[in-house]
C-alpha cells in the first residue's frame, strides 16, 4: 500500500495536471518527481498555445502557490484533491506545497514545487 505522503504527492500532481488541461487550449505536459526522505521535488514542463496563455496561467499559479503551507488544513482535507475532476481543488494544493518557482521561456512554462515531509 502506498504511504500517505506519497499518495498526497500523487494527488498534487494529479491536481496540477488537471489544472493545466482545464485552463489551456492545447498543452503538452511532462513532469518529473524526485522523492527523498526529507522532501519531494516535482517539476512540470508545460508547452502552451501562446505567450498570452502562458502569462495568464503563470499569474494564476502564482496566486495559488504563494499561499503558505497549512499542515492542519491539509491533514483534514487532502482527500479532496485528485480523483474527482468535477471541481477545482487547486487552492488546497497551494496549501500542501512549501516552495514554488515559475520559469517562463517563450511558449514553455516550468513549475517547480517542493514539499517537505
Amino acid at each position: 500500500m502506498l504511504s500517505k505522503e506519497r499518495s498526497k504527492v500523487l494527488k498534487i500532481i494529479d491536481e496540477v495536471y488537471k489544472y493545466f488541461i482545464e485552463h489551456s487550449h492545447t498543452c503538452h505536459i511532462t513532469s518529473t518527481i524526485d522523492f527523498n526522505s526529507t522532501e519531494t521535488n516535482i517539476k512540470f514542463k508545460v508547452r502552451l498555445k501562446d505567450k498570452n496563455e502562458i502569462e495568464n496561467v503563470s499569474k494564476e499559479l502564482e496566486k495559488i502557490f504563494k499561499v503558505q503551507r497549512y499542515r492542519e488544513v491539509e491533514e483534514l482535507y487532502w482527500n479532496l484533491t485528485g480523483d474527482c475532476y468535477n471541481s477545482d481543488e487547486t487552492n488546497l494544493v497551494g496549501m500542501m506545497v512549501d516552495e514554488f518557482k515559475i520559469e517562463i521561456e517563450e511558449d514553455v512554462l516550468r513549475l517547480y514545487l517542493t514539499r517537505k515531509v
Binding site: L76, Y77, N79, L80, S87, E89
Partner: peptide, 19 residues
C-alpha cells in the same frame, strides 16, 4: 476520528461544510 474524517470527504466531495 482522523482517518475517518479525512475519508468521509470523498462521500460528498466537499459540498457539506460540516464534514
Amino acid at each position: 476520528f482522523p482517518p475517518l474524517a479525512a475519508y468521509c470527504l470523498k462521500f460528498h466531495q466537499g459540498y457539506c461544510l460540516y464534514n
